[in-house]
């Protein structure tokens, strides 16, 4: 099912949580809402679900205006940030809940419900857990039960709020790959919220970058990463260095510019290679697993951060306090009317 979001606005008192949001989500896609904490991702997700009412604008499911439809009738699956499993019910009853509360005439038989629940538990690889209580499950297991519970009602749309936010790094990486595979299997239109760029880049078909209640850019992971629309997007998707400069402009004379270079787009050399080489001093070296982060200061005093592979770092044999040359491989220039 496709989702159209038209001119959605939401205020909390005098605070604008969402400001004229327009977005269209094609049927069957897995979309990530990516942005810093407080940027309005959860609010937008809740408005799509019907848990929150927008002050203005429309939500359209499959061409049909659903703005005023009650959350109960929207047939969405929602996975809450902290799972929101029913603590006093077993895993089985949690997953069966959506089917058990149906009016008698549309409720499946007991045996049909049982079959459906067991099928879902197989899907999330937790068949043996039916009789347990949520408190007896690990975080990753709870997350998968929350997903199974949401899928039990065969939703047209699956909404997930920071689905891996509360999990440790390894479970997180595992689960997001699993979610991607699951989505490839069941192809339900899905929107998930995250503040982790890596997660969005790895899992989503399309990324919507949000900031301060607005959409900064929407596009495929390649588009937003390779062609960021503005410094915010660039900055949010990876570590960047800033260089301040000026470019002459025919009409306005001269305008201040800011150049951005991602830290892994900086080469370090022992000797000057060409005119783009800048001399710098190594201030600090930090090893981060497979990569190494080197903090330097340019002759102008500006700090700069470079990220090298461990191999490149060892080949160069860099030491703190050494004098070296840095060379930006890819520079993006934005006129300075934009504040990060």
């Amino acid at each position: 099912m496709s989702i159209e979001i038209e001119n959605i606005g939401k205020q909390f008192g005098s605070f604008t949580a969402l400001d004229d949001i327009n977005l269209s989500i094609p049927s069957g896609e897995l979309v990530a809402l990516l942005g810093p904490s407080g940027s309005g991702k959860t609010t937008l997700l809740r408005i799509i679900a019907g848990l929150e009412t927008p002050d203005s604008g429309r939500i359209i499911f499959n061409g049909e205006d659903t703005t005023d439809r009650h959350v109960r009738e929207r047939k969405v699956g929602f996975v809450f940030q902290h799972y929101a499993l029913f603590k006093h019910m077993t895993v089985f009853d949690n997953v069966a809940f959506g089917l058990n509360v149906r009016p008698r005439d549309s409720r499946p038989s007991k045996s049909a419900i049982k079959e459906k629940v067991m099928e879902l538990l197989r899907l999330v690889q937790l068949e043996g857990m039916a009789k347990r209580y949520p408190s007896q499950l690990s975080g990753g297991q709870r997350q998968r039960i929350a997903l199974a519970r949401a899928l039990a009602v065969e939703p047209q749309v699956l909404l997930l709020d920071e689905p891996f936010g509360a999990l440790d790094a390894q479970v997180r990486a595992e689960l997001r790959r699993w979610l991607r595979r699951l989505h490839d299997e069941i192809h339900v239109t899905s929107v998930f919220v995250t503040h982790d760029q890596e997660e969005a880049l790895e899992v989503a078909d399309r990324i919507v970058v949000m900031n301060k209640g607005r959409i900064e850019q929407a596009g495929t992971p390649d588009q937003v990463y390779e062609h960021p629309a503005n410094p915010f997007v660039l900055n949010f998707l990876g570590n960047v260095n800033l260089f301040h400069g000026r470019i002459p402009q025919p009409a306005q004379g001269e305008r201040k510019t800011v150049s951005y270079v991602r830290s892994h787009d900086i080469d370090i050399d022992r000797s000057q290679q060409d005119s783009s080489s800048l001399s710098a001093e190594i201030r600090h070296i930090q090893k981060l697993g497979p990569s190494v982060r080197v903090t330097l200061t340019l002759a102008s005093g500006e700090p700069i951060e470079a990220e090298l592979t461990r191999d490149a770092f060892q080949n160069l044999g860099l030491q703190q306090g050494e004098q070296v040359y840095v060379r930006p491989r890819q520079v993006r220039v934005f006129v300075e009317d934009y504040q990060i």
């Binding site: 109960r72 929602f78 809450f80 929101a84 603590k87 809940f97 509360v101 519970r149």
Partner: peptide, 16 residues
């Protein structure tokens, strides 16, 4: 109210 919201999304009535 997370659990209540979860119940509503799953189609439960207010009384349920």
């Amino acid at each position: 109210k997370d659990e209540e919201e979860a119940a509503l999304v799953l189609g439960a009535s207010g009384l349920q």
